[in-house]
């Protein structure tokens, strides 16, 4: 896809680890926010234990770590509109979308209407979306 002279590539950020136990989740979020400045076609995936990153109601007071979960709600403002959640990963963990944060973006082509960024996707469909990417970053 080309936008003027600029080539737009499809970048996917694959998040597969639970937050706080390792630094991967936070590092991924930081890289995503930096990459968002480059106007590329970005999508995020939360699969395997990565689905825990978006759990609603995280409270890190007692563990003395920074609760970065609120930052995900800013992704819409960075024009990140495709956040894939793998359905099988939720099911294996006894979770549903209702357990996760509700992430939205404002659609500039539709009078800034608020729309869902979260896309629930099956493993089989996700495989196809991964295959369409130019670059996949793994966290």
């Amino acid at each position: 896809m080309e936008d003027g002279d600029q080539i737009i590539k499809k970048f996917m950020y694959m998040n597969r680890k639970a937050p706080y136990g390792t630094i991967y989740a936070w590092e991924s979020l930081e890289v995503v926010l930096i990459a968002a400045a480059f106007d590329q076609d970005i999508s995020l995936v939360f699969a395997d234990d990565g689905v825990y990153q978006l759990m609603d109601g995280q409270n890190t007071e007692e563990v003395g770590m920074k609760n970065f979960s609120k930052t995900y709600s800013a992704l819409g403002d960075y024009d990140i509109k495709k956040i894939y959640i793998e359905q099988e990963s939720l099911e294996e963990r006894g979770l549903s979308l209702g357990d996760l944060q509700d992430l939205k973006y404002e659609d500039e082509d539709d009078d800034w209407a608020e729309k869902d960024s979260i896309i629930l996707i099956s493993r089989a469909e996700l495989a196809k979306v991964i295959d369409e990417q130019d670059v996949v970053f793994s966290f």
Partner: peptide, 22 residues
């Protein structure tokens, strides 16, 4: 318990018989 809370995991959803401790 503090590690459950950090991850947004509810004490009410732990397997019956497991004790939540501080």
């Amino acid at each position: 318990g503090p590690d459950l809370k950090a991850r947004g995991l509810s004490e009410g959803n732990v397997v019956d018989g497991i004790s939540v401790v501080g």
